[in-house]
Design a protein around this nucleic acid. Structure first.
Lengths: 260, 260
DNA sequence: GCAGTAACGCGTATGGCATACGCAGTAAGT
DNA sequence: ACTTACTGCGTATGCCATACGCGTTACTGC
């Protein structure tokens, strides 16, 4: 749960343009020495909030709810956390796992990116509330950057400009998030209605079969009749398929570049 | 603003498993004949809500706000719209433009998909509030399906299973949404702080330069120093780059398939 | 050891939100 | 003319994030 590794605060506590929530995530908050002993701690609050999110989804996380979980009042939390948005950032930072091991010597870039992507996809699967958090800005937290760094390591040595590597990584990242989002919506719907995920998927398939009339959407109808909506329980099958296409695309791009 | 083309209601008003919001979007609501004349209409409400969203973003759209815009009370709206979620679906359905023209005879599938993708990206750029709407389920509205149908048309004739074409389209779709989302966040931040988009991008670049220390994130640092954060005003440049990678990937996949 | 002060817990209050409920009035069908 | 279905909409409920202020506590400089 402890996110910061200490030590980077020293050179950074200048007059910085770092937004408050990010300051908290980077451990840039000076701890007070005076005053009464705090009975709570940021970590305990964040842990409680994560527990609620895991059990009931992010919408269930309210200051009142989290406070209740800690047997205190909502306003007490504000002594530790500046706002709910800040809490959300800290939650994500704490719940995001470490990135996977960086690329090893004998590993191809493609295998490394694949590993990286699957690790991220699994993380989103483990913490489905992640993608329910409304984000207003690209959060530059330590863990986020660590994931990006590991991703860059997977592409290290390729004869590409560094900025393009970052673009490629963002491309993969976007795909992962979107795919995980769709999957999370299904999971959420299943929980909300007390059905299984398979049942929800089947239901959606039925809905599509019902709405997609051949005269108005002939090609869609054909795809559905060909079984596009019957994915019997393959959990990550669609994900791997799409990922392979993207990696193919990157491979083609790399090949088209002259080695320096 | 009028979404439905009439005529499909007949065979569909059976005991259907169609969710309420979708029923509204598909025009499956029977209009009452008795009672006083309505002073409002769904279309007027949706139009007012869209106007608010366009001017101040989706979070500004509240039942009270929309009602105020129409000089009536919040509860009046519920005579026309079952819930705010339903209103959101109707807003998106009304504001989503028609999909681009389907693939013409001489056009390659790649050019057609590119056209389709750019049209969708432009649409998200024109209606940035779209991506601020929290969606809980994949909405199967007429316009959504129409876009998908046009997308399938772009891939028509390729020697692939129909279900795989749909997967590929979803892949492109996800990329477009994610890229538009990032762009929309920047635009939103710019409006919120009264700065220009370029200023916000520059600010974010400065933040990254500040946070990304070479000892902890050497590769990221290298990418930043190589200019990854200085994209001086190229609005859709990054989008086109990523899209080309995905299309490369699809092309490789198509080539690897035996023609039947 | 004592004053000053900063941080503590937290009650209360504000303003916003979606929406359930019910009532009084209106218009069409009988 | 009378029933019935629908209208607009006031009022109320129960959430939400959070601003403010008060009494209390414990560290710091004298």
């Amino acid at each position: 749960m402890a996110v910061n590794t200490e030590g980077e605060t020293a050179s950074m506590t200048e007059i910085s343009p770092v937004p408050p929530a990010l300051q908290a995530a980077w451990g840039m908050r000076e701890k007070p020495t005076k005053g009464p002993k705090p009975t709570l701690s940021v970590d305990r609050i964040v842990a409680a909030a994560i527990a609620v999110a895991r059990a009931e989804g992010y919408p269930a996380v309210s200051m009142n709810r989290v406070a209740g979980e800690l047997k205190t009042s909502a306003m007490s939390l504000y002594r530790y956390v500046a706002s709910k948005d800040e809490l959300a950032v800290l939650m994500m930072e704490a719940a995001a796992g470490e990135p996977p091991a960086p690329r090893t010597a004998g590993e191809t870039w493609r295998a490394a990116v694949e590993r990286w992507a699957h690790a991220m996809f699994t993380m989103f699967g483990d913490e489905p509330w992640f993608l329910q958090v409304p984000i207003a800005a690209p959060p530059a937290t330590p863990r986020q950057l660590a994931w990006m760094e590991t991703g860059l390591a997977a592409l290290d040595g390729l004869p590409l400009p560094e900025s393009e590597k970052l673009s490629l990584l963002l491309l993969v990242n976007g795909y992962i998030r979107y795919e995980a989002l769709l999957r999370g919506q299904m999971t959420e719907a299943a929980r909300a209605h007390g059905r299984t995920v398979d049942a929800v998927i089947a239901e959606f398939g039925g809905l599509m079969r019902h709405l997609v009339q051949a005269d108005r959407f002939p090609l869609l109808r054909r795809a559905i009749d060909a079984g596009a909506m019957d994915t019997p329980g393959d959990p990550a099958g669609g994900f791997t398929f799409g990922l392979s296409r993207i990696l193919d695309g990157i491979e083609a791009f790399v090949r088209s570049h002259p080695a320096p």
